[in-house]
């Protein structure tokens, strides 16, 4: 890669940072006091990834997902995952057109730019798995036909981390397809007070009035820009080191997959882009390691509590990061 001189301002990245800022401000109109959560959501979008929001009920998971979808324009579908939901309810179905006597594919709610998979762990693994191909390859194969999903395509799933009864934990392969898993957490006391003082319908109203901040084409160009962000060979080596370390870890049954490495790289690139850089810093990687990696790891001593699993996995990731030297 040819050396660039820094005296030339990178027009592209600057614009990218501005676009992202516009997007985030738009979302922040409805989610107050949660810039980090918004940022993660945006990063997942720019990394052409999918987002899993995992938290206790009532902190705004759905609101965030909806706000993100609305802000980027494009089409938005919400699927409420229930235990009786079937794959065809998501993907669509071929029906016989009486007039022509031919089967015609009726697209399911998955065919949208942003799909909100609300409470994804409430449906059966069978239905959950229907998302696999769509999330990985942005396509749907049905009855011998392959249907492309129009970019940008993003699945935002929410799940309640504290609920256990009547839920089906996501299979590992499914988990691995989420680029980021994030939490929202309770708002700060100050923000909570502000929330209470406002009229009850305001948030809902604001969400309803939320206008797209960006064009779809802008989102795509942002994704393209993120894909072009440079990652140095040393940092690639660092990613590999971390992955190998997790695979070697005695606490884990399953370490980081190459897909996980790529996802980590992608969000780091998006993070660099958002910060106005055209190269990845080790800080990008380290800051995103927990949301990007922890949910992919399978603990050796699988604990029954989801929350404990999560904490344990994050601890392992932290431990790995604290042991490996950062290049440079």
């Amino acid at each position: 890669m040819g050396a660039m001189t820094r005296l030339v301002p990178a027009e592209r990245e600057r614009t990218a940072a501005e676009l992202v800022q516009r997007l985030e401000r738009n979302i922040a109109q409805v989610i107050r006091g949660k810039p980090a959560a918004i940022r993660h959501a945006v990063l997942a979008l720019l990394a052409r990834g999918h987002l899993l929001i995992e938290d206790v009920p009532g902190v705004g998971k759905t609101t965030l997902a909806r706000a993100l979808a609305l802000s980027m324009g494009g089409t938005f579908h919400r699927i409420q995952f229930t235990s009786d939901l079937l794959p065809s309810d998501i993907l669509g179905v071929s029906v016989l057109e009486p007039a022509s006597g031919q089967f015609v594919f009726r697209k399911g709610p998955l065919f949208a730019n942003v799909v909100l998979a609300d409470e994804i762990n409430r449906t059966t693994p069978r239905t959950q798995s229907a998302l696999l191909e769509a999330m990985n390859d942005s396509q749907v194969s049905l009855d011998g036909y392959t249907y492309r999903l129009e970019p940008p395509f993003m699945v935002v799933a929410t799940q309640n981390s504290e609920e256990h009864y009547g839920t089906y934990p996501l299979p590992e392969s499914q988990m691995d397809r989420f680029t980021l898993r994030m939490r929202i957490d309770y708002p700060s006391a100050e923000d909570e007070k502000g929330l209470i003082l406002e009229a009850p319908a305001v948030t809902e109203d604001a969400l309803a009035r939320l206008q797209p901040a960006l064009l779809l084409s802008e989102i795509i160009s942002l994704q393209d820009a993120a894909a072009r962000v440079r990652i140095s060979p040393e940092l690639a080596g660092y990613i590999v080191d971390v992955a190998r370390e997790t695979r070697r870890s005695p606490f884990l049954a399953l370490g980081l997959s190459p897909r996980g490495e790529l996802a980590w790289r992608n969000v780091a690139r998006a993070s660099a882009l958002v910060a106005g850089r055209d190269y990845v810093l080790p800080d990008d990687l380290k800051q995103l390691a927990l949301p990007a990696l922890a949910h992919r790891l399978v603990l050796a001593n699988q604990l029954d509590s989801t929350g404990r699993v999560r904490e344990e996995a994050e601890r392992v990731v932290k431990d790995v990061l604290n042991r490996l030297p950062v290049p440079g």
Binding site: A3, M4, S232, R277, Y279, V280, L281
Partner: peptide, 13 residues
């Protein structure tokens, strides 16, 4: 500047 040179391969004048 170091990070630019190190990770961004950008030459510092």
């Amino acid at each position: 500047c170091y990070a630019e040179a190190r990770y961004g391969d950008i030459e510092v004048p």
